[in-house]
Amino acid sequence: MTGAAPILRVDRLCAAYGLAQVLFEVSFTLARGETIALTGRNGAGKTTTLKTIMGLLRASGGSVSFLDEDVTRLKPFEIARRGLGYAPEDRRIFTDLTVDENLEVGRRAARGGGAGFTPDVLFEIFPNLAEMRHRRASAMSGGEQQMLAIARTLMGNPVALLLDEPSEGLAPVIVDQMAEALLRLKAQGLSMVLSEQNAEFAAAIADRAVLLEKGAVRFVGPLGDLASADWF
């Protein structure tokens, strides 16, 4: 992460729900291969930040650039096609579709013509999914759905991932599996921004932390410097 040029640059980003401003000039950068933990309490603006980067919420000020291109005004699908993957907080799995079909929705050809992720490669990273390829997603547990949500995003062969609370509501055993899977992805060179309230989980994966409070950045730096009380 040292010296590498940032692939994602969030610059003084503002956002509002109706009249209520919820993000106040949020800035941070993500280097290639780096993982950032976006932390803060419920309602601090983590989800809003990720949604605004992804174009799901209109930025009322500031900019987002990705791979040296201004993507602030682009539509979500255009941003996704440029290589930014997004797995939302509530997973938003297509529960009427099977595991295979969910993956199919996310499928996009790999950039640069490489082999990229295929269902088989993903089933190796998320072994639980392999056994239920033809199962409807509605019949899966929360942990399995969370893995499917990430696998589905990976099918688009993204350069960087935005993960909103990947460990939320998961049993401790599953959290460990999730951490393991994300570490493998990290080792493959994927950059990630994960919004996270679970301190231990974040510490295991992230290189740096960005602490949000009331919609503004309060702290950027090593995770160890964050007081544990700030996590709740």
């Binding site: 992804m54 939302p88 079909e101």
Partner: peptide, 24 residues
């Protein structure tokens, strides 16, 4: 067909389909 899978996915959550790179 892929079209059909996308239609069924969009029936459930069209915003998410867009966030996965599909031109709505």
């Amino acid at each position: 067909t892929r079209f059909g899978v996308l239609v069924r996915a969009a029936t459930q959550d069209r915003e998410m389909v867009g966030a996965l790179g599909v031109d709505q």
